[in-house]
Structure formats: structure tokens, C-alpha cells
Design a protein around this nucleic acid. Structure first.
Lengths: 188, 188
DNA sequence: TCCTGAACAGACAGGTCTGTCTAGTTGAAC
DNA sequence: GTTCAACTAGACAGACCTGTCTGTTCAGGA
């Protein structure tokens, strides 16, 4: 899990950082407000002055992770589309080999929020639409004959590799990414 | 979600069927014992005489789903490996187009159980190992030059397509499966 | 007829959950 | 020095959680 940048008031920032750590490691419903405020060293009233409800904190947590991911992709150096795709997918390897990897925060949150109209699910939708769009854009630039299908396949591959990194063997992920790109993208 | 076959005592069966429906639709932590026994029409003492704890019920739920999946694959008609692979992956389409699809029960449960040593996670591990093995077996029979890598890629694809069916557009899944098989398996 | 076993209803304990509230403290700007 | 905003501590309400317990009902077999 990546760190967020220090923005907002100290109390809000501590709350968001603590919530990020605990939600990611333990799941959302399994972590209570009391534990978050205790570990953040923040009074309950202060918490509820920053976040009207726990779900608002959950949305803030996901939006923060989304922002971090977008910034990382935006910061990639200029490179040809195919290398850029490899770099984007390569972020999965980076996450996988880091200790305490617990899967994709968005997929994990989606498992806990069944209502597709909830703000949490909307935040997840936004993330997925962005990711699909980024991949499609690179595929178009690469001259892929079916960028829409290829993008969806790469989204599925990304989701699945994140699960493999969490549930199976993280060390297998880098080789799988390489093989997947070689097989899914048209031969050059 | 598929129905389980009627086994065990009526009370136990009703509990398992109700739990399956509620856990799958609403998530595991979000559904309490009280609700399960109320909708199953079973007394609390009866519940705890069949399942020592809620987690035992969760494990039974997952093992039941696992058993159903294995039976469905075992019941496939004899056919060449590549067709069999298409039939196995095709089960994702079937699930996706069914109403009230809420994703993969195993991936959803994994998101809620962070401890890899828990019985729930062990049940998930068993399922994933079985699925990987089934795919690898067919790939070997098909003469795939790298069955281990191909099997892992198909596992990842399956996981990802289940997420796409849940979070994005279920109707896109059948075409994606066809495209994935065509691209991932060596040209014939 | 009596006994056994399975299921019933529902109270209860002890804890946790979210969210609200009161009251006091700090620190900086003016 | 006063004011004001942000913070702290912690009690409280009301709901829900898992799990235990007591006692009842009822069918089937010895």
C-alpha cells in the first residue's frame, strides 16, 4: 500500500492514513471507528467533524488510493505505447512483492459493498473506468486492431493477477505479466 | 448462485441454503446469525448444534459452492481439451448473465478474511488449487508448451472476468472469453 | 407408556457497532 | 486579554453482534 501525501489538517490526515492501513489490512466492516480513532490518536468528535459517517471515510480512503494510482501513471516517463503498457501492468508486480500485500483495495471493497448505487461502489466504478480508459488509449496509440477488447482483457488480467498475488504466489506475477502482454498484444 | 443438493437434515439444509443466499448477496460480515436463523426458520440452539460457530457455517458455504463447481466440471461431456477449456471458462458467462450476480463467492470471501491461516482461506486455497489443476491438465492434454504459465494466465483471466461480470458489463464477458482463449492458447 | 432426540421459542450475557453529546483544553490571531 | 476554531476525553444511546442457556413441543421406537 502506498503512502498518501500530507494534505489536509493533521487530524484528518492521521485519520485517513490510519484508516487506509487498517481497512486495507483487515477489511472494512471488520474495522470499527473506535479502533481507527484510538490508533490515530484523535477524539471521536473530531472524527465526525471531518467525516459525517464511516462510509464517507471509506470513500475518502478509496478516492485517495485512486488519486495515488493516477499520479503514478501520470508520472511515467515518455515512452512508446507498448512499453508504457508494460510499465502500467508492472505496477502490479511492484505491489505484489511488497510485504503485507492484501490484494486490490477496490476489489476488496467491492466485495463488501453489494449496493451498486452506493458512493463506495461509485468510487470503484470511477477507478475502473479510468484504468480501462488509460489502457485503451495506449492500445489505440499502439495501433491495436481491437483496442476495446484488448483493454477489457488487460483489465481482467490485471484484476486476476492482483488476486494471484494476494492468494497464490506473488513471485509468479512478473513472469505472468510478461507472458500475458506477449500473448495478448498483436505480434510486432 | 447455484442451488445445493438436498443433503443433511432439513434444518441444516435450510440453514446452509439461507446462509448461501444471504452471504453471497450481502457479504459475510454484513449478515448476522440472527438474520440467517430467522429467514431459515430455525432456532438459535439448533443452529449452534449444527455449526459450532459462524465461521464453520462460512466454511460449509464455501465448501458447498466448491463441491457444486467441481461436480459441474466433472459432468462435462467428453470432448477435446480445447473445447473442454472453452466449456470450463464458459461457466463464467453462465454465471454472469444470471440475475443478481455478485461476483465470485471465493474472491469475495477472501476480501473479508485477511488471515491466510484461517479455515475460510484454506477452503479458498483448495478451490483455487483445484481450478488451476483442472486447467493445467487440459493444457497438457492439448500439448501446450508451457502449461503452468498458461494455466496461471487462465486462472487470472477467470478471476478478472468474474470481476468484470460483477463490476462492469456482464454482457461483454462471452466475447471476451472467446478472444482470450484465441489469444492465450497457441495457434492451432 | 415412557424415553429419546431433534427442533422449537426466546431470554440473556457480554461485547461491539455507529453516531451524538457535554465539557474542557490548547493555541494563535487580533 | 479576548475570541474563536480545532482539538481532547469520555459518557451515553440504541442497535446489533456471537454464543449460551432454560424450558417446551412433538414424533417415533422400545
Amino acid at each position: 500500500m502506498e503512502k498518501s501525501d500530507p494534505s489536509g489538517t493533521p487530524a484528518r490526515q492521521r485519520l485517513l492514513e490510519t484508516a487506509t492501513r487498517l481497512f486495507y489490512a483487515g477489511g472494512i466492516h471488520a474495522v470499527g471507528i473506535d479502533r481507527i480513532i484510538a490508533e490515530a490518536g484523535v477524539a471521536k468528535a473530531t472524527f465526525y467533524s471531518h467525516f459525517p459517517s464511516k462510509d464517507d471515510l471509506v470513500v475518502a480512503y478509496l478516492e485517495d488510493q485512486d488519486r495515488i494510482g493516477r499520479a503514478a501513471v501520470a508520472a511515467l516517463p515518455p515512452q512508446p505505447p507498448r512499453k508504457r503498457l508494460a510499465a502500467i501492468l508492472g505496477r502490479i508486480s511492484t505491489a505484489a512483492v511488497a510485504g503485507d500485500y492484501r490484494g486490490c483495495p477496490f476489489l476488496n471493497a467491492a466485495a463488501e459493498y453489494a449496493d451498486p448505487a452506493s458512493p463506495v461502489r461509485r468510487a470503484i466504478d470511477a477507478r475502473r473506468a479510468w484504468y480501462h480508459g488509460v489502457l485503451r488509449e495506449q492500445l489505440v496509440a499502439d495501433g491495436d486492431p481491437a483496442p476495446e477488447v484488448s483493454a477489457a482483457l488487460l483489465v481482467a488480467l490485471s484484476d486476476g493477477l492482483l488476486e494471484i498475488a494476494y492468494l497464490d504466489d506473488p513471485r509468479s506475477v512478473p513472469a505472468l505479466i510478461e507472458a500475458a502482454l506477449q500473448r495478448l498484444l498483436p505480434a510486432r
